[in-house]
Amino acid sequence: MKIYELVIVGAGPAGLTAGIYAARKKIDFIIITKDIGGQTLYSWDIENYIGYQFITGPELVEKFKLHIREFNVDIRENEYVMKVLKDTKNFRLITNKGEYLTKTVIIATGRKPKELGIDNENKFKNRGITYCATCDAPLFRDKVVAVIGGGNAGLDAVLQLSRIAKKIYLIEIKKELTGDRFVIEKIKKIEKVEILTNSQVIEVYGDNFINGIKIKKEEDIIDLRLDGIFVEIGSIPNSEIIDFVEKNENREIIVDCKNNTSFPGIFAAGDVTNVFAKQIIVACGEGAKAAIAVFEYLKYI
């Protein structure tokens, strides 16, 4: 079996930037990924990626794709790594389509939305429960909806929905909304938004589609009849593909300032790691660093 110098797992901002750097260093590598773009595909308004005063996530991903195409990078799309294993001096990657051997790995698998963890959640996925406001908000024209989570993602969902839905409940488990104050002030002025803090979703009910939810607000149980809920309660790292590197209490892969993990030859970059600030531009920088670190590492093995 061929032994690659590097396999990059994931093609979000971190993986793609690592790919560009690796290609320019003429490293013999491939990228294995479920999709191109990762979470950036779901971002709507991006106003803090330098060079673009305003760009949408899907458009920025288009730019990334055009850029990486310049280098004829071998990207195995629609393929996902299930396990990274040690194999004498190399690493063996098991995917849904086959196996690969490589001297080094950059794990850039990003994060996925956190789920509510209540009964019926799976049953009602895409039957009223959605995790992508950007995708599905337009389907709820003149409907009653709830947004779960009062962080920035939740507030963003409320703003998107305020132009579409008839009534929006914003449900936050903590005492106060946690997003940017500027946006909170804006949302408090929208009449059709009702904010419920100290509130936890305990039940989702319906037939084929959801008809309502029950929430626990302090000692009270409140029954809300509605057509859809948007879950925006944060994300978890896609770090389960590897067992033999150190992770922190949030299951993020721990990296040092050169993107080394605790195991030599395994590097990690972007939102799957414990890097401070989960931002597109930070992930890009981390990907660049990881590829340069791999290049240095390959000189000595």
Binding site: L41, W44, C132, T134, C135, A137, P138
Partner: peptide, 9 residues
């Protein structure tokens, strides 16, 4: 599709 959905695109 919807206008905003990335996978539709």
């Amino acid at each position: 599709s919807t206008k905003t959905c990335p996978f539709c695109r």
